[in-house]
Design a protein around this nucleic acid. Structure first.
Lengths: 214, 214
DNA sequence: TTGCTTGTTGGTCGCACACTCAATAGCATC
DNA sequence: GATGCTATTGAGTGTGCGACCAACAAGCAA
C-alpha cells in the first residue's frame, strides 16, 4: 500500500483551514506569480482536494486577492512597521530604501508588478492593490512627518515627497523581469536614495552613509 | 444559404498574410492585453481558421512577442522619431513627455506593464522587451545629446538623465490599471516634466511652457 | 485549358482550468 | 461509546487553450 500519499482526512476549523489556504497561496504568489494560484495547485500544496479550496473561496479571484493582500501586508510590516521605536526616521528610511532596492526584494517587486497588471482583469485584486497602495503611502508619509517634526527632514508636502519616492521605486521595480544591461550606470541603483535625499532636503549622501543594522 | 460567414478561401502571399496576422494581434494586444492573443481570437479577427495562425506562428509565444514589438515600434516612431526636423530638442522632449503622460497614452502604458510582467514567463517576449527598452533609451539619449550640443540642455551624463526620466515615466505607468485617488496632488502628473527639467538643467517650468503643436 | 504548387481548411487530441454537488467521514459533544 | 454536525471528498461538467495533420482548392505557370 502506498504510504506517501495522504488519504486520511484531516478535519480543521474553518478559520485555520482558511488561513492555511491563504498562506499557501501567498507563498505560490511570491515564488511563481499570481496566475499560478489555481485550485489544483493550492490543493496539491496542502494535500487536499481542489473542491475544498472552492468551498472556502467560491471564486478563485477572491483567493488571489487575499493571497496578494496577505503577502503585501507581511512585507509592509517588515519594511515600514507602524510602531517604530529605537531608531530615527532617517535610519528607518535608509533601511527601507536599502532593502527595497536589494535583490532579496525582487520577489516582492515581481509581485507588485504582477498584481498591478492582473488588476486590469480582476476587480477584486484591483481593490486590494488600491488598499495596499494607500497603506504604503500612509506609512511612508507618517515616517516623513515624524522626520520633519524632529527636524531631520525638510519638505513642504510630505505626501508629494512620499509619492515621488514611491514612483522611483515602482519605476525601478518595472525592470525586475527584464534582462539587466551589465553596463547600467551605478547611479541608477542609488536613485531611490538620492531621490529621497533630494525631496527631503537632506545633504547628498546622507542616507547612503547611514549604517543599517539588520 | 448563410451569406455573412466567410467560407470562400482567400489565398494571400505569405508576407502579406503574416503582416496581417501581426497587425491584428497588435490591435488586440493594445486594446485587450497580450494574454488575449490566442489562435482562435486572431483567426476570428481575420475570418480564417485557427490552424492558419499556427501555420505562420507554430508557437503562439512568437506571435505575442511580434505583436508587442510591432505596437512598440509604431509608438516609438510616433513619440521619439529618429529623424527629427523642424523643431528643437526642447520642443521634441516637451511633446514626448506631454503625450506620454496623457490619457491617450494609457493603452501603451498598459501594454508596457503587460509585457514587463509577461516577460517573466515568456523568454521570447523578454528578449523583445529588452530590445525595445534599448531602442527607447537610445532615442531619448540621442535627443538629449542634441540638446546638449546646441546648449539647450545641460547634463554630465545623458544616459543617466535619460534613465532617470524613463524611470519616472515607468513608475507612473505602473498605476495605469489602478483606481486613481481623486485627491492625488497635481504635482504628480507633472513629475515627468519637472524631472526632465531638473536632470537637464532647465529652469523650472521651462518644459511646461513650451507650446506643443500636435 | 490543364496541371501543380502551396496556402488554407476542418477536424481532432490532450491538457488545464473553474465550478458544482451529493456522498462521506472526522471529531466534538454528550 | 454513540450521535450529529459539517468539513472534506470524489466524481463530473463545460470551457478554452495550443498543437498537429491529412485533405482540399486557389491561382499561377505552362
Amino acid at each position: 500500500m502506498p504510504s506517501s500519499i495522504q488519504n486520511k482526512r484531516i478535519r480543521k476549523s474553518p478559520a485555520s483551514r482558511r488561513a492555511e489556504i491563504v498562506a499557501a497561496a501567498s507563498v505560490v504568489a511570491l515564488a511563481e506569480g499570481l496566475e499560478r494560484i489555481t485550485l489544483r495547485r493550492i490543493a496539491d500544496e496542502l494535500s487536499v482536494r481542489p473542491g475544498l479550496i472552492s468551498h472556502y473561496f467560491p471564486a478563485v479571484e477572491d483567493l488571489v486577492a487575499e493571497a496578494y493582500g496577505s503577502a503585501a501586508d507581511a512585507e509592509i510590516e517588515e519594511l515600514l512597521p507602524a510602531g517604530r521605536a529605537g531608531a530615527t526616521p532617517t535610519e528607518h528610511l535608509a533601511r527601507f530604501l536599502r532593502r527595497a532596492a536589494g535583490e532579496a526584494y525582487d520577489d516582492v517587486s515581481r509581485l507588485w508588478l504582477n498584481a498591478r497588471h492582473l488588476s486590469r482583469y480582476r476587480p477584486a485584486l484591483r481593490e486590494r492593490v488600491a488598499e495596499q497602495e494607500n497603506a504604503w503611502r500612509d506609512r511612508l508619509v507618517a515616517l516623513i512627518r515624524d522626520g520633519v517634526a524632529i527636524g531631520e527632514f525638510r519638505t513642504e508636502d510630505p505626501l508629494v515627497s512620499a509619492i515621488q519616492i514611491m514612483v522611483v521605486l515602482d519605476g525601478l521595480g518595472m525592470l525586475v523581469n527584464g534582462i539587466s544591461p551589465a553596463e547600467d550606470p551605478p547611479e541608477i541603483k542609488r536613485l531611490p536614495l538620492t531621490t529621497a535625499e533630494r525631496v527631503l532636503g537632506l545633504p547628498v549622501g546622507a542616507l547612503s552613509a547611514v549604517e543599517v543594522t539588520d
